[in-house]
Nucleic acid binder design. Structure first.
Lengths: 129, 129
DNA sequence: ATGAACCTTCCAGTGCAGGGGAAGGTCAAC
DNA sequence: GTTGACCTTCCCCTGCACTGGAAGGTTCAT
């Protein structure tokens, strides 16, 4: 399987695949005599895993760590669970932050009312912010 | 007022202030004969505005636009209100997205249970993701 | 034999908001 | 008269996940 086919199968681009290889997410595949990358089907499921990790909001560096554990022959499950737990914590923190921000912006917006046009005080840029 | 004093007064760094000037957020100040930047107190309240904008999650580019309107002698209030409205929409979208993500990760985590150590299937990286 | 469609490497840039540090000028105090 | 703290410009670096393009090699169909 050449890089273009793999990209099509995984729903990504050849550029991204070369980048993944250089980033340690894809193992360097066999090469044809001409130097073309020659992938096996395993690369497709590996990329599926990468995409599931990304969908879970993991960084490529975190996904790579999981893959490295797996490639070393160990079960990465414990590691994966720890990542999920940390991700949940981060998400909860981020959600709390965004909710606070939303409230304070909504407050500003309410204070501004109907966007009337009286000029702001001279010593200030805008009284609505 | 020299740049170091202004930075201290505004709770930021000289690096950031030079960057703001180059980015069009701070007007180029007078210079002393030696070439030092010499700010007036107006710079402090301008920086306060910048910080309030940042606290509201606006980008420096958006804040700069508001400042440009103000510097042109117009009241930027309408503009500010529009920015706040867009920011609210974006925040709501982002919150919805994060909530969805949180749910799906919580689902994965629940499926993983107590992080037990049975190996993942051979053809898969980890059954928990 | 030639053109399209693929592939290779390498270099550079994107957006965001600055930070790091070099090389050199200036100002006040001791 | 020199130390130390400040200032100047300059250019590169960070993180993240790629993307774009140049210059050149390969494969396949016509």
């Amino acid at each position: 399987m050449r890089i273009g086919e793999l990209a099509a199968a995984a729903g990504t681009t050849t550029k991204a695949l070369r980048f993944y290889e250089q980033a340690g997410l894809l193992l360097p595949p066999q090469r044809t005599p001409a130097g073309y990358r020659d992938y096996t089907d395993a690369a497709v499921s590996r990329l599926d895993f990468v995409r599931r990790g990304q969908a879970a909001g993991l960084t490529l560096a975190q996904i790579r760590q999981v893959l490295e554990v797996r490639d070393a022959g160990q079960a990465p499950c414990q590691h994966v669970v720890a990542l999920l737990d940390r991700r949940l914590e981060d998400l909860d923190a981020q959600l709390a932050e965004l909710r606070t921000l939303r409230n304070s912006i909504a407050g500003l917006r309410a204070r501004a009312g109907g966007a009337d046009e009286r000029a702001c005080p001279e010593d200030q840029v805008c009284r609505y912010l």
